[in-house]
Design a protein around this nucleic acid. Structure first.
Lengths: 209, 209
DNA sequence: TAAAAATATGAACCGGGTTTGCTTTTGAAC
DNA sequence: GTTCAAAAGCAAACCCGGTTCATATTTTTA
């Protein structure tokens, strides 16, 4: 098993992604053409597009695939959706379990730096949560009316996205993984408290002057 | 005033948008090329792009520019952000004040049909709220800490987007403007109640089986 | 009516992505 | 080892959204 073919393919794919990330980091996402990437990675353009469906996917592959719907659907009996999600993000913030696919830290940080530096990529990353939202809404709609489910899903995914953005922004601006994780811990609790108790609690929604 | 130039420009712009919308509705956004649109509207491609910066903008121009941040910033003294926004959407739902730019109903409905029929356009419409979210977060951050402001802005814009989607989906699937407005009334109250009181209230966040 | 300013245009170009038709490489059977 | 089918790679041409450029036409205004 693990034939030569498979190994070479994986190797090629990694090389392309690595070359692309380096070039993007050096000169910005929009200033690098796929032709350059292909050339630098020593493959034909058409081959590059066999491994990566789009230019964006060279960076966004593997980003933000939390599967919120799955977490909620698979939650143990007696636990509410929000509890399950809070639990999950607690684990994410404290444990270094997060890079399941074993992308090393440095690469992850570069990846985030590239994403935040490019409006194209930032909004592309945003889109990835769209499908998640719909999937989560479907799961939630099994136990409540559709509008409530849709609103819950919208609020939850928006909050999670905000948490992610802050986390990675800390990383990009120089914080260590531990430091960023520690901050994320507090952020997670605040975010879920807000979701559970609403914006009115504690006078968060203050009248104007 | 109102010289010949201005009139002709406006007329040309309208013609292009109308032709484009008709073609998109007939054959789908992705299946129509800008060359076809230009040809059908009897202008050069380069002229078309002088009026509309992108193909998407042929449909999305004027969609979803609520200016949430402005509403919050301009709220009367003594009113909280959520109260101000709830008020605004109440007005939107009941009054026929909404098409300030006087796009007629039929056109609006076709526009929404085209948008919902195309993933490209749907996610494009999504992006438009991104800037809104940031602007709203900035306004809210004047009176609370940044994270809370960011989370509030995220939850609010997500909820508003959900409301809009449902409203237009009703319209597209045949409801009259009055019918859709009536439904929106109830939806608005639910959405803002959820925002104010959180998902825990009334046991909305139920444990699993 | 002539000069100045705004607009429109065709044609060539760029970059992301696909199609086509062909060559090379690999895995496996004999 | 030889053979052969499948997989992978490739160059070149193509499509489409969008831009640039140099030129022509129209509207304004003086």
């Amino acid at each position: 098993m693990a034939g030569l073919r498979e190994r070479k393919k994986e190797q090629t794919q990694r090389r392309i992604a690595a070359v692309a990330l380096r070039l993007f980091d050096e000169r910005g996402f929009d200033a690098v053409t796929v032709n350059e990437i292909a050339e630098a990675a020593e493959v034909a353009k058409v081959t590059l597009f066999k491994y990566f469906p789009t230019k964006e996917s060279l960076v966004l592959r593997g980003v933000g695939q939390e599967d919120l719907a799955g977490i909620v659907a698979a939650r143990p009996a007696g636990r509410s959706p929000l509890e399950a999600l809070r639990e999950y993000y607690r684990g994410f913030a404290t444990g270094p379990t997060e890079p399941a696919e074993a992308v090393d830290r440095d690469t992850l940080i570069i990846q985030m730096r590239v994403i935040f530096a490019s409006p194209t990529l930032s909004s592309g990353a945003n889109d990835l949560l769209h499908g998640q939202r719909e999937a989560l809404a479907r799961v939630l709609a099994e136990e409540r009316d559709e509008l409530t489910a849709a609103l819950m899903a919208a609020q939850i995914t928006a909050s999670v996205l905000t948490l992610q953005e802050r986390f990675f922004r800390h990383l990009v601006s120089g914080a260590s993984l531990e430091e960023a994780g520690r901050r994320l811990c507090g952020d997670v609790e605040l975010a879920f408290d807000l979701l559970e108790n609403g914006l009115l609690e504690n006078g968060l929604d203050q009248p104007g002057e």
